[in-house]
């Protein structure tokens, strides 16, 4: 690193930092604080908020007081289940992306340079394609009368269309498909720096190939794997398009729950803010673990 403290631009440091501090401070940080405040406000009867502080939004999230609100509070499982479903779907998507993405990244990294460029290009294009369009394509593909079912019916492999749309499987497929490139690229980036002479050394010492993969290659590229997992997990967890377009309104994930409070019919902003805060806290926990892990293994500083 060019860590000289008397760089040419040192005198300008604060001025150079000002724009990003200002923009992100005002447009990202302070909104999150206001959102936190909002989650403690009172919902007005027909929508809108009153500036009276209450825990009602969190109460609604965690406690069930019966239809008339007069029963002793029980644990409310509905929203926790939605949350849990989001985590579960995101984890599964991450795992699937890893299962397909890792071998692909490895395979690309072992191609000769010219072929590597082509492969890399092929993997990068979908990454740049509009997420909405990709989700819509998936919806089109797996509809009851979509091309996949038509083709399977025509070839006689099935006698009834496979019903996928509006099921959790469709949502999973959408998440996996949406974020697969997010896994391949970071893993490839790590793989590119991996020195294959290590594998050769292992082979010389009579290590089996799968042993080498598991004990030499994977540990060496672990930062890339973890980065890929995080890049898949976080957006999957808060996903809105996949559950909305592929899951109907039945396979709610936390993203759809939040959207419903603001753009849908519910109009309960404090509850939406509370759900967002809970989602944000969960994500920050994951990231904290990540940075903790990074500093522990000493690869934090580039």
């Amino acid at each position: 690193m060019t860590g000289t403290s008397t760089g040419v631009f040192s005198g300008l440091r604060n001025w150079l930092l000002l724009p990003s501090w200002l923009v992100i401070g005002v447009l990202v940080l302070s909104p999150v604080f206001i959102m936190l405040v909002y989650s403690f406000l009172t919902k007005e009867f027909r929508g809108g908020v009153i500036w009276d502080f209450t825990l009602a939004a969190y109460d609604q999230f965690f406690l069930d007081r019966g239809l008339f609100g007069d029963e002793p509070p029980k644990m409310e499982w509905t929203y926790i289940n939605i949350f849990w479903r989001s985590i579960w779907q995101a984890l599964l998507a991450t795992l699937l992306c890893l299962l397909i993405g890792f071998p692909t990244a490895y395979f690309i990294a072992t191609r000769p340079p010219s072929a590597r460029t082509v492969w890399l290009f092929m993997v990068t294009v979908p990454y740049w394609v509009n997420l909405l369009i990709r989700t819509v394509s998936m919806k089109f593909l797996i509809r009851d009368n979509g091309p996949v079912n038509e083709w399977l019916l025509a070839t006689g492999m099935i006698s009834e269309p496979i019903h996928l749309i509006n099921t959790p499987i469709a949502v999973q497929l959408g998440l996996f498909y949406s974020y697969l490139p997010f896994m391949v690229l970071p893993v490839y980036a790590a793989m590119e720096r991996y020195s294959f002479s290590l594998s050769e050394a292992a082979a010389d010492l009579y290590a089996s190939k799968w042993f080498t993969l598991w004990h030499i290659v994977i540990p060496s590229v672990r930062p890339g794997i973890i980065a890929g997992c995080i890049l898949v997990f976080i957006p999957s967890m808060g996903a809105f398009l996949a559950p909305d377009l592929l899951g109907g309104a039945r396979n709610f994930m936390i993203g759809s729950l939040i959207e419903e409070q603001f753009k849908g019919t519910a109009g309960n902003w404090p509850f939406g803010a509370a759900a967002s805060m809970i989602l944000l806290s969960a994500v920050l926990l994951v990231l904290l673990y990540y940075t903790h892990y990074q500093s522990k293994t000493g690869i934090a500083k580039n």
Binding site: S20, W21, P31, P235, M237, G238, F262
Partner: peptide, 24 residues
């Protein structure tokens, strides 16, 4: 802190950023 701040929009799920921005 600056690095954290700059990468904040990457870490916060998009829907949370959307909600926060709307409320703001």
């Amino acid at each position: 802190v600056t690095f954290g701040l700059v990468s904040l929009p990457l870490m916060v799920p998009e829907i949370v950023t959307a909600v926060a921005t709307l409320i703001f």
